[in-house]
């Protein structure tokens, strides 16, 4: 698809190097350190008390908070997929791709946040419907909710590369939803 009249295929090419995962949230490091030493951050490495992630990230850098929220969303969806696959073994193979995507996304996010930030997440209990069709329908709704949540977080992200990462995760979730709908 290279232009015949101008040089290169810059119109569709993408040559920008993917930003290091560690640098995505580098801006948060300073804030985390400051907050931790000031004793006002929750779940910081200098504080033994563990608290829910949603509260823990409240005082941290905005993008660290966004990352932690994304991890919580993803872990909740991952738990829903796992529970659905365990309850309905016939669906397990169909859910493998969804589960792999969630795990890859969580791994990328956990790798992105500064050391010491609690990304364990707190998934709520997920009740799987008795009938497979209903279970799949409920799971689709859960995945749609995850997608919408990721889009919302991408909108909140201050770092452009991090917004792109979250947008990519949302798009990947849409692809999986497309597969679940078939």
């Amino acid at each position: 698809m290279r232009s015949q009249t101008r040089s290169g295929d810059a119109n569709l090419s993408f040559t920008r190097r993917w930003t290091s995962r560690r640098t995505l949230l580098a801006i948060g490091l300073g804030t985390v350190a400051t907050a931790a030493t000031a004793g006002c951050a929750l779940n910081n490495p200098l504080h033994e008390e563990k608290t829910p992630t949603a509260r823990a990230v409240r005082d941290l850098d905005p993008d660290v908070a966004v990352a932690a929220e994304a991890v919580t969303l993803l872990r909740g969806a991952e738990a829903a997929v796992t529970a659905t696959g365990q309850r309905h073994a016939g669906l397990a193979a169909r859910l493998a791709g969804v589960l792999a995507a969630h795990q890859a996304h969580v791994a990328r996010l956990v790798d992105s946040v500064p050391d010491g930030v609690d990304t364990s997440g707190t998934a709520t209990a997920y009740v799987v419907p008795e009938r497979p069709a209903a279970a799949l329908a409920q799971l689709r709704a859960t995945e749609q909710s995850l997608h919408d949540g990721l889009v919302g977080l991408a909108m909140r992200a201050r770092s452009g590369p991090f917004a792109r990462l979250l947008g990519a995760m949302a798009a990947a979730t849409s692809q999986q939803l497309h597969g679940l709908a078939r």
Binding site: A100, A104, A171, A172, Q175, Q176, G179
Partner: peptide, 9 residues
């Protein structure tokens, strides 16, 4: 096929 991170590679 589904990708892990569409729009990034």
């Amino acid at each position: 096929t589904p990708e892990m991170f569409p729009g990034t590679a």
